[in-house]
Amino acid sequence: MLYPTYTRRSDPFALMRSMLRDFDGTSPGRVTQPVFPAVNVWQGDEAVAITAELPGVDPADIDISVKENVLTLSGERKAPEIPEGARWHRNERGFGKFARSVRLPFVAAEDKVEARMTNGVIRIVIGRPEEDKPRRIEIKAA
């Protein structure tokens, strides 16, 4: 590998850092992939929502449970049945059991959790309890 003799004369360590970066595979910036399923968390005044992509998972195979402030999403991605004598050209999809827990910013009431699945994307909406909702504070004239 060829390194430039000087890139920035004001920073004598620049070259050393750039060399180290070439060897270091775990430097920040290389983010590891999240645990399956990847989740997006949405927040608002009235509720918190969690969305996740679960393509090919039957809604009947998904289990959502809430215990205090921890929401757990678990289930199984069932492998398709392949007829005998078939030949794989590509196998990029993953299968098997999965579980993911998300800590909520409040204790969720069970009757305030609502889940809906459309086209392989699950959306779980958790209503905020009254005491957790933000309150507007009036400013009194002195």
């Binding site: 999240p34 968390v41 949405w42 608002g44 918190v48």
Partner: peptide
């Protein structure tokens, strides 16, 4: 709702 945390 606004996106607060995103993995995908």
């Amino acid at each position: 709702l606004q996106l607060a945390y995103s993995e995908y």
